[in-house]
Design a protein around this nucleic acid. Structure first.
Lengths: 249, 249
DNA sequence: CGGTACTTTGACCAAATTCAATCACTGTGG
DNA sequence: CCACAGTGATTGAATTTGGTCAAAGTACCG
């Protein structure tokens, strides 16, 4: 590698551009042409990486930006008056956080980094303005919102109709699919979240998560040591995740 | 009333216009000026009323329109492969159904009228196009999507952290508030859905709904006979709905 | 007026929670 | 380099909430 190439590499790493970003085919500008991407790129701010546990935005803060994860992962937690705390979602690279803040103009949850995480910060008013000139961008934004709605509906079904086993299987399958889409192995990955986070997200006690994971292990479905996951029998998990509920409950 | 006035009344009833619609302050065009409302109005199609049990759109159908309820109410049901059936929401007048179809380009659930129901049909491609020229409309559309996201998150919290009592109290309080916003009494209203629908929506068995409603009744919180609801002690219900979970589970 | 669909009530049961205790892993400071 | 603290994960036993099954009661519609 020449000195020149090294320098250019360092530059890219530091102030990455959408043009060179490996996530561009999954991210908001996915449908834009080169020219539009440049304009889009111009409104984005890159931040110093968040360290594990650092907060990206806090529940109640005034809304001004949405964020895409560039590397690492986030969790979003919502507190209700009564001290109830709900983990409403995990965000992986290329996923868009903060969309649920548009309506009320303040973030309805707190976003926390689960590991070292870099994000792109997109001021929403400028994004909104840009979406006027770029129908593809607007459509993509509508789609992102709609997709998250759709995901939430799946989650509602999971929470209200599925057993603990089915929930955990769904969770693992879902992660696996998201990793696959991003070009990582769908069979081997690292959980960036604690068991307690998984439990909170799935509406189950930590102990239940733990018990079921060991059961999955003894059944030969997965091999999990600490946070390292190896899926041994994906079809089995998928079958489990779908459940055979005959409309009960 | 003169014959003329009668005719004009009949006209309005038949092919209502946004300009004269009593819901305009709650509905999509809420931020538009007169001129824009006219343009918006022009893309809307009004349909013959749906009778109870009739289907507005079916899961899997190609997506082309979103719908606002003008009178009556809808439920949306999603079937998963495995025969699991989840009621993902109820739509009251001025609420927008079908937004969750934008991403996948087909309706992810079936919308069914719970009573005689009229809707406005809005072709999404034309709405999208119009939102290019009308920033207020675009913003309102983003807000509607975001709001539904937000609602779903509340629902996820309800499903994963609340007891049966808290869920049902939340449900009644939520309905009450939605009626209030629409100018109806928050204390007396009619449930357009069956107990089974409520149960499905809240992730509880019908029997549980029934038991808890009678308990609420004996506790003097409500007076319910058949589907007629009278809320006697709204604050009590609200308190119940919030629960005192200290972050458990 | 009769039938169908919806609702209520009771008895029993099972899944998942709670409580309690132990174990493993990480990182820090002596 | 190792002991120790602290967090996170696992396991077991007892409890509880809400589900299932069964049956009877009630409202609504033609």
């Amino acid at each position: 590698m020449t000195a020149n190439a090294q320098a250019s590499h360092r530059l890219r790493a530091h102030e990455a551009r959408c043009q060179t970003c490996s996530l561009s085919s999954l991210c908001l500008p996915l449908a834009l042409n080169m020219e539009d991407i440049d304009q889009f790129d111009a409104i984005i701010r890159r931040r110093a990486p968040l360290r594990k546990g650092e907060v990206l935005f806090t529940q109640g803060d005034a809304f001004d930006c949405v964020f895409t994860v560039r590397s690492g992962s986030l969790k979003q937690i919502t507190n209700e008056n009564s001290g109830m705390e709900q983990l409403t979602g995990f965000y992986l690279p290329s996923e868009l956080a903060g969309l649920d803040a548009i309506d009320s103009n303040c973030y309805p949850g707190t976003a926390v980094a689960l590991e070292t995480t870099t994000v792109c910060e997109i001021p929403f008013d400028r994004l909104n303005a840009l979406s006027e000139q770029m129908p593809e961008l607007r459509t993509q934004l509508f789609k992102s919102l709609s997709k998250e709605l759709h995901e939430d509906r799946r989650m509602m079904m999971l929470l209200s109709r599925k057993t603990a086993d089915e929930r955990l299987a769904s969770f693992l399958v879902n992660l696996s699919q998201r990793f696959r889409r991003r070009g990582y192995s769908p069979y081997s990955f690292r959980l960036s979240m604690a068991r307690a986070d998984i439990g909170n997200y799935l509406g189950l006690a930590v102990e239940t998560i733990s018990r079921i994971l060991t059961r999955f292990q003894t059944q030969g479905l997965v091999d999990i040591r600490a946070r390292e996951v190896h899926i041994l029998h994906l079809d089995g998990l998928i079958e489990l995740a779908e459940g055979e509920c005959q409309g009960g409950r």
